[in-house]
Amino acid sequence: MKKTATPFYDILGLSTATICLVHCLIFPLLTILPFGLNHNPVIDLLFALIGVFAIFKIIKKSSVLVSSILVVSMSLIWISILGEMIFEIHIDLIYLGGIGMIIGHLLNYKLHKKQNH
């Protein structure tokens, strides 16, 4: 059971981080089209909550490097989301956080796969 837990959370975190990053990159382009779309930071908050859940499950069993990458990346994402929700300013740290999350989950997945084979 423990052998499948970490890959599951890596895949969950990786897919969530990728979807979130695509959302953050594509959505500003969609707002200039006359569809009447407005950005809602609650969507970003939902992605971040899923990411936090995956990270808490992963950092207990991962290396210091992977844990550091994931925690710093999630911190950047939360700073950006809270800045937008509280101060109504867009902070580009969310992009760096999303890229860091993808890198951290991929690295952890590869290290975990390497250890089990």
Rank of each mutant, 00 (worst) to 15 (best):
M1C: 10
K3P: 03
K3G: 03
T4N: 12
T4W: 15
A5W: 14
T6D: 05
F8C: 01
F8L: 14
Y9K: 11
Y9S: 07
Y9N: 13
I11V: 13
I11M: 14
I11C: 10
L12T: 09
L12E: 00
L12V: 11
S15Y: 09
S15V: 14
T16I: 12
T16G: 00
A17N: 07
T18R: 05
I19V: 14
C20V: 02
L21S: 02
L21N: 01
V22D: 00
V22Y: 03
H23N: 09
H23E: 07
C24K: 00
L25T: 14
I26R: 06
F27M: 10
P28S: 05
P28M: 04
L29Y: 14
L29K: 15
L29G: 15
L30S: 01
L30W: 03
T31S: 08
T31K: 13
I32M: 11
I32N: 09
I32R: 12
L33D: 02
L33I: 13
P34V: 02
P34R: 07
G36L: 01
L37V: 07
L37D: 02
N38F: 11
N38D: 08
N38I: 09
N38W: 10
N38V: 10
N38G: 05
H39E: 09
P41M: 03
I43C: 01
D44T: 05
D44M: 05
L45F: 14
F47K: 05
F47L: 04
A48R: 08
A48G: 09
L49N: 12
I50W: 03
I50F: 08
I55C: 04
F56G: 10
F56L: 13
K57I: 07
K57P: 01
K57Y: 05
I58L: 08
K60E: 11
K60C: 04
K60M: 10
K61H: 12
V64T: 10
V64D: 04
L65A: 11
L65F: 12
L65T: 12
L65D: 01
V66I: 15
S67G: 07
S68E: 02
I69N: 06
I69K: 08
I69L: 14
L70V: 09
L70N: 06
L70E: 00
V72L: 13
V72T: 11
V72D: 03
V72Q: 00
V72N: 02
S73H: 01
M74I: 09
M74T: 06
L76I: 06
L76N: 06
I77R: 00
W78G: 01
S80R: 09
I81R: 00
L82K: 00
L82Y: 04
G83R: 09
G83F: 08
E84V: 03
M85Q: 03
E88S: 11
E88N: 13
I89E: 12
H90Y: 11
D92Y: 12
I94F: 04
I94S: 04
I94N: 00
I94G: 05
L96N: 07
L96K: 04
L96S: 08
G97I: 03
G97W: 05
I99H: 03
I99K: 05
G100M: 08
M101V: 05
I102K: 10
I102N: 05
I103F: 07
I103Q: 03
I103C: 04
G104Q: 06
G104T: 06
H105Y: 11
L106M: 14
L106Q: 06
Y109C: 06
Y109T: 08
H112R: 15
H112K: 14
H112G: 09
K113H: 15
Q115G: 00
Q115K: 14
H117T: 13
H117R: 15
